[in-house]
């Protein structure tokens, strides 16, 4: 999964999609994941980064990451 090239995201978690004109907000962990995706990190690398930084178990994060990815795609922020 890739974040679309022209997506702008600011430190405050504000996301703007210039193609559709929609804007979104995300929480700090969402912000971090989007950044990792922008750096072309794959799912496994993202998981390892988050697990090393946050107090969360693997299966919880896997479920949440799956859900978050779906949201990003539905919102046209990311694409396959």
């Amino acid at each position: 999964m890739k974040i679309k090239k022209n997506i702008a995201i600011s430190e405050s978690g504000f996301i703007f999609n210039p193609t559709t004109g929609d804007s979104f907000s995300t929480n700090p962990i969402g912000f971090e994941i989007i950044h990792l995706l922008k750096e072309d990190k794959n799912k496994e690398e993202i998981k390892q980064t988050i697990l090393s930084r946050y107090a969360v178990d693997e299966s919880t994060f896997e479920k949440d990451f799956y859900d978050f990815s779906t949201l990003l795609q539905n919102s046209q922020i990311a694409e396959e």
Binding site: F24, N27, R53, Y54, V56, F68, I77
Partner: peptide, 21 residues
């Protein structure tokens, strides 16, 4: 110490409903 975890969310702004404020 690890950071407190919260599920990642993304939410569309100004869809006519209440925003976070």
């Amino acid at each position: 110490e690890k950071l407190r975890y919260e599920r990642p969310v993304v939410k569309k702004l100004n869809t006519g409903m209440m925003n976070k404020f």
